[in-house]
């Protein structure tokens, strides 16, 4: 992290002051809890099998191809849910994995979401993210059938 910050901040003092100000003003807004958030979870198997691009994933694939080198992308499942604040939605994933999503709050253009992946009741990881309205995040890593599982999560509110 030191590495990220070692960039070129001209004058640390004013920047800090500004951040403090933002923090204070930001707090007043943060307790706001809105209605529901629409969430779509797409479970995708990415592999090096013979080239295959699921047409339902074309947009996602274009995005992923700039970063990964898989030749095949298959949509395994798709879950839609509408969740209120602090309400947890669950999507079952292959290999006894479960993804839990809990909206925490909406702040401006972003929804704060808690994502947890469990494998047979054991939590593999938990992350809290701020996802842009109509934005998507892809979480990947678990091996599956000679490839890797990707979970593409998008929201709108």
């Amino acid at each position: 992290m030191k590495y990220v910050l070692s960039g070129r901040f001209g004058h640390p003092a004013p920047v800090l002051l500004l951040l403090l100000l933002i923090l204070v003003t930001g707090l007043t807004e943060s307790a706001w809890a809105g209605p529901g958030i629409n969430i779509v979870v797409k479970t995708v198997l990415a592999s090096q099998d013979s080239a295959y691009a699921d047409p339902r994933l074309s947009e996602l694939i274009r995005e992923l191809q700039s970063v990964f080198k898989y030749s095949s992308y298959r949509l395994l499942s798709q879950n839609r849910m509408k969740l209120g604040m602090k309400e947890t939605g669950t999507a079952s994933l292959p290999k006894n994995r479960v993804l839990k999503i809990t909206p925490i709050r909406i702040k401006g253009e972003r929804a704060e979401l808690r994502l947890e992946i469990f494998k047979k009741k054991r939590q593999i990881f938990q992350t809290v993210i701020q996802l842009l309205n109509r934005g998507t995040i892809t979480v990947g890593g678990p091996r599956h059938k000679g490839g890797y599982l990707l979970f593409n999560i998008s929201n709108s509110f």
Partner: peptide, 18 residues
């Protein structure tokens, strides 16, 4: 809105790397 689609607040896990 500029910035990445998602900002990671925190991350914990039983993982070897992220």
């Amino acid at each position: 809105v500029s910035g990445p689609s998602a900002i990671i607040n925190s991350f914990t896990g039983d993982i070897s790397s992220v």
